[in-house]
């Protein structure tokens, strides 16, 4: 019999649903204007309430698009945490009532583990053990992955996430928020060695990204005093130099992790993996150091339900289910399974 799992993601801004069938992701529906047009609504921004308005349309779309009926589902997976409590509650409550009414088993998923398991949605897939660098607007983590459900955080940011550092330095340069992608685009035309920004050195495998924001602020202030048009005239060079420093900080720790654990299977997860500068630097490193680098398609890197479905699939195979009274967790650690 085919195992069909419905998965729901609602940890932050994105409302998403996905159906996975015998381990193959059939779809990955993320609330967008087009999904909403069918139901006569509009996409509100950011609000937790938005999840309530999005959820039924995206779930309906995922099930219909998969060409199955609700009675053919075998389980329901959902993001239990970490995330914004109000947002998690909406997805979690829906998943629980849906599972209860159809008498289906429920599977809780850790959002951060799911980001890593997104690597198993399609080929090429990394082989165990591997090191995963998860980089997004909210997270920067190095994780040692021994098996689908056996992971350990070996390093993380002690202040800002790297995506936030991109966005905030971009803001200082007058780019719109979130400015990471704009900064990346401008950086392609600039000289990464034009200016020197400090590369923070943290203990062990941890990161710190709050200092560079201040460094850029002081740098710009000083330069603007000499030349009022400094930012306009050198924007591409500033972007390239900031980007270079941020990527350097990521790669120093990634190289250290590879060396410490003697593992050359390297996976990148999270939305910042779309950054061109990071991708180029990784491709150079992988050739020079003989790493195998894996980066999922962007659709599976940003917040999405397909990765939740993938994680739910591995838990289903092991028979790991959760009771209907589980509560969402705003804080949820990787590798700790209750």
């Amino acid at each position: 019999m085919t195992v069909n799992i419905l998965a729901i993601e609602s940890s932050c801004d994105e409302t998403s649903a996905s159906v996975i069938s015998d381990g193959k992701v059939l779809n990955n529906i993320i609330a967008t204007q087009s999904v909403h047009e069918k139901y006569g609504g509009v996409v509100p921004e950011l609000a937790s309430r938005a999840h309530q308005q999005h959820l039924i349309p995206v779930v309906h779309e995922a099930i219909t698009n998969a060409g199955i009926s609700k009675s053919e589902l075998s389980a329901v997976g959902f993001t239990r945490g970490p995330g914004l409590m109000g947002a998690l509650l909406v997805g979690g409550s829906f998943a629980k009532s849906f599972a209860f009414s159809l008498d289906l088993p429920l599977i809780e998923v850790n959002h951060m583990e799911a980001h890593i398991l997104a690597h198993f949605i399609e080929d090429p897939r990394p082989s165990f053990p591997f090191i995963c660098l998860t980089v997004s607007g909210g997270h920067t983590q190095l994780v040692l992955v021994r098996d689908y459900l056996d992971m350990e955080v070996i390093g993380e940011t002690l202040d800002d996430a790297v995506g936030e550092a991109f966005d905030k330095t971009a803001k200082l340069l007058g780019l719109p928020y979130p400015g990471g992608p704009f900064l990346d685009r401008l950086a392609q035309e600039g000289d990464p060695k034009a200016f020197d920004f400090p590369v923070s050195s943290m203990k062990e495998l941890n990161f710190s990204f709050s200092g560079i924001k201040t460094a850029v602020l002081y740098f710009l202030r000083e330069k603007l005093r000499e030349d009022a048009h400094f930012v306009e005239n050198r924007k591409a060079d500033i972007c390239a130099s900031v980007q270079h420093a941020l990527i350097e900080m990521l790669l120093i720790k990634l190289k250290k992790a590879v060396k410490t654990f003697g593992i050359t299977e390297v996976a990148i997860a999270g939305g910042v993996s779309a950054n061109r500068g990071l991708r180029d630097a990784l491709s150079v490193l992988s050739q020079r150091l003989g790493w195998n680098v894996y980066i999922p398609r962007l659709e599976y890197c940003t917040d999405n339900a397909a990765m939740i479905a993938m994680a739910a699939h591995f838990k289903y195979e092991k028979g790991i289910f959760c009771p209907l009274d589980v509560s969402p967790l705003a804080k949820m650690k990787i590798g700790i399974h209750e």
Binding site: L158, A161, G163, K331
Partner: peptide, 14 residues
């Protein structure tokens, strides 16, 4: 005892 980090993206940390 937890790591205090910026909540910009997630809006709130506990």
């Amino acid at each position: 005892v937890d790591i205090v980090h910026s909540p910009t993206y997630g809006l709130v940390n506990e």
